[in-house]
Design a protein around this nucleic acid. Structure first.
Lengths: 252, 252
DNA sequence: CCTTTCATCCGGCTATGACGGATAGCGTTC
DNA sequence: GAACGCTATCCGTCATAGCCGGATGAAAGG
C-alpha cells in the first residue's frame, strides 16, 4: 500500500466493482482470490454495495448493477460537446459507412463518449465509456496535438506510452514529431496502432483558444479505407463536421 | 445510523457521488452542508475518489466522472433482453412516432434500460438508468402483473407505494385489482400516473415460465394518443413486438 | 487592504473495518 | 443417502484508519 489515499475502504469497494466487471460477475471466494483479500472482507463490501443497490446478487454470484448506468449517463450528458456532437457523429456514420466516434480527455486518458456504427460496418470492441491511452488512437493524438506541450509531457509522465500493437508509438520524441505533423495538417491518422487491420482518421474539436476539448473520428477496415479516400475525402468530411460542431458549441 | 452496513465508508462515498449528481457538481463545503458531515471528512472522500479517477475536479468543484459510463454500459450490455430488444424498441419508435422504452426490475425498482425517441416526439425527463417506483409506470405494472403475488407484496413492503402525481396508485388493494386486469388483458396502461399529460401503453416480456423479465412501452402526449389508437392499435403493435422479442430471447 | 469564505492540511481519539476462524448451506460424488 | 468439499455467511477481536475539530493557506469579494 504505497500510494495512500485517505479512504482505503472506498478504494477497496471500487476495486471489487472493477474486478466484478472484468470477471463479468463473480462469487465471494473468487473475488477474494483475485484481489488477495480475506473472504470476510470481500463479503463485507459486497453486502454493503448490494444493500445500497449498486450490485445485484443472482444465483450466488454478484454482478454490477444498472445503477451505474444513470450515474454514467449523467456524467456524459453534462459534457456540452456530447450534446452538440452526438447527432453530427451519427450522421457521419451514415455518410461514410464506417464507425464514428467522439472522444474526450479525462485524467489524461481518452474516453469514448459516443460511438455510431453504420448498419453494414464491422463489429468492434469499442463501447461508450471505454478508456484508452491517448497516443494509441487517432482521436487521442488529435487532442494531444492541440494541447500545450507541458500538458502532454505531464500526461506521459503519468501514464507512460504503453504498447498495444506493434505499431503503437512508444517513443516520446517520435510522438512529438507526429503531434507536430498533426497540428500542421489539422487531422490525425491511425494505421493499425490500436487494432490490427483498422484505420482511422480523426479531427480535433477546439475551443476559441485553439485548445482541443474533444475529437471525432471515422474508422474502417484497411481494405475499405485507402488511397484518395483515406488521404483526402474522409479527412475533408471529418474536418467540416468538426467545424460545424465547433460553431454550434460557441453559439448555444 | 440505524441501518447498519458493514462498510460505512463505502456508503458515504456513494452518498457523496449521489449528492454530486443531484447538485450537478459541487464544492467541498457545499457537500459537507448537504450531507451534514465535516468538510474534512468530505474532503478525504473526494480526494480518494478523484485520485481513483471516478470524479473530476474542475475550477474548484467536483463532478462525477465518465468512468461510471463504462461500468453502467457493461451492466446494461450483460442483460440479454437489452441486446435483443434494443433494435425492436428503436423500430417501435419510428412506427409510432412517440417515445418507446425498455424497462427491467432491479432491487424492486423499475430501471429504464433503453429509450428511443422519434424525431418529432416531445422532450421527456426519462433517461437510461433512471429508477422509478414500479407501480407508477405502465411498464412497471406490466412487470408486476406477471410476477407471483408474494413477490409483489415483498416489493411493496420494501418500497411502499409512493405518490408521484394525483393519479398514482397508492392503495394496495387497488393495485392488485389493476394488476389482475393487466394479467388478464396482457398489456398495461398509464394515464398520467407518473407524468401529467402523458399516456403510455406497455407490454411485458415474459420467459417460458410466464414470469416477466422486462417490459416495453410507447408513450405520447394525451392529445396524440387516444380512442382506437390508445385502446387497440398501439397495444396490438406493442404486443407483437414483445412477442418477437420473447421469441428471439429463446432462440439466441 | 481587510474581511470572509472556502479548500486543504494536521494530529488525536475511537469507532470500525479488516481479518481469522467458526458455522451453515449447498452440490456433488460414490 | 451419507459423507465430503466447497463456498457463502456469521462472529468476535484488535489495530488501524476513518472521522472529526481546529489550524492554515488561498482566493474571492467588498
Amino acid at each position: 500500500m504505497t500510494d495512500s489515499v485517505p479512504v482505503k475502504a472506498a478504494k477497496t469497494s471500487f476495486e471489487i466493482i472493477h474486478a466484478l466487471r472484468e470477471l463479468e460477475g463473480a462469487g465471494v471466494s473468487e473475488l477474494a482470490d483475485e484481489l488477495d483479500k480475506p473472504t470476510s472482507t470481500i463479503h463485507d463490501h459486497l453486502r454493503t454495495l448490494e444493500s445500497e443497490e449498486y450490485l445485484v446478487k443472482s444465483d450466488g454470484k454478484y454482478y454490477v448493477g444498472t445503477r451505474f448506468l444513470g450515474i454514467g449517463e449523467q456524467a456524459r450528458a453534462r459534457q456540452k460537446v456530447y450534446r452538440v456532437a452526438r447527432q453530427e457523429v451519427d450522421e457521419l456514420a451514415d455518410e461514410t459507412g464506417g464507425h464514428t466516434n467522439l472522444m474526450i480527455e479525462e485524467h489524461g486518458r481518452g474516453i469514448f463518449l459516443h460511438k455510431s456504427r453504420a448498419p453494414d460496418a464491422v463489429q468492434l470492441d469499442t463501447h461508450a465509456g471505454m478508456r484508452v491511452p491517448l497516443q494509441t488512437t487517432a482521436m487521442g493524438k488529435a487532442i494531444l496535438a492541440f494541447r500545450p506541450r507541458e500538458e502532454v509531457e505531464s500526461i506521459i509522465d503519468r501514464h507512460g506510452l504503453p504498447r498495444v500493437t506493434e505499431k503503437t508509438i512508444t517513443d516520446r520524441g517520435e510522438l512529438f514529431d507526429e503531434l507536430a505533423a498533426i497540428a500542421d495538417r489539422g487531422h490525425a491518422y491511425d494505421d493499425e496502432e490500436r487494432v490490427k487491420g483498422m484505420r482511422c482518421v480523426a479531427a480535433p474539436i477546439t475551443n476559441e483558444d485553439g485548445r482541443a476539448i474533444a475529437a471525432i473520428s471515422v474508422s474502417s477496415p484497411k481494405s475499405r479505407l485507402r488511397g484518395e479516400e483515406f488521404r483526402e475525402e474522409v479527412p475533408d468530411l471529418i474536418l467540416s463536421k468538426a467545424n460545424i460542431i465547433e460553431v454550434n458549441l460557441t453559439y448555444s
